[in-house]
Amino acid sequence: MKTFLNIVYWFLIVIALIQFIPVDRTNKPIDQKINFVSVFQTPKNVQEILKKACYDCHSNETVYPKYAFVAPISWSIKHHINEGREHLNFSEWANYNQDLKKSMLENSAKSIKSYSMPMPGYIAQHSEANLTKAERVLLVNYFEEILKSGKY
């Protein structure tokens, strides 16, 4: 029993100490000249879908939930956000080359159709991000319209 209490004691000490390891949650400033919704003058209904289901991981407009301030959960969340921004960052849209933009739009449409985005783990914590079939169709159609126009 003494060994068990020792393990619990040291575990709690470690958990307390890791809270002091900082995680940078600073969002870069948004330049509207390169922001996806500004570049395409995206309709409000599509903007709302993007903001509720995509922007936390795929823009510089992340809104961190309260639990994102507790280590080691904060590390995992920050890792997911960094990874999401690497694949697609709507806030940096105009900085990408044409081939990359085309690929991002195609992959986004495919991911939305296959229900792999938003990620199930994200939806579990953010029920508003659970897109309806109609919202998915609207978003996919919007991305496909941009692809067809060739002006991405």
Rank of each mutant, 00 (worst) to 15 (best):
Y64V: 07
Y64C: 08
Y64S: 07
P65D: 09
P65Y: 10
P65A: 13
P65K: 09
K66M: 09
A68I: 06
F69I: 03
F69P: 04
A71L: 03
A71W: 01
P72M: 07
P72K: 07
I73V: 15
I73T: 13
S74D: 14
S74E: 07
S74G: 07
S74I: 04
W75E: 00
S76F: 12
I77C: 01
I77W: 02
K78Q: 11
K78M: 10
K78A: 15
H79P: 00
H79M: 14
H79S: 13
H79Q: 13
H79I: 08
H79K: 14
H79N: 13
H80Y: 11
I81A: 06
N82K: 12
N82W: 04
N82T: 06
E83Q: 14
E83K: 15
G84P: 00
R85P: 00
R85T: 00
E86H: 12
H87F: 08
H87I: 06
H87Q: 12
L88Q: 03
N89M: 02
N89E: 04
N89W: 02
F90H: 02
F90P: 00
F90C: 05
F90S: 00
S91P: 04
E92A: 08
E92H: 08
E92P: 05
E92W: 03
E92R: 08
W93H: 01
A94S: 15
N95S: 12
Y96L: 07
N97W: 07
N97V: 08
Q98F: 11
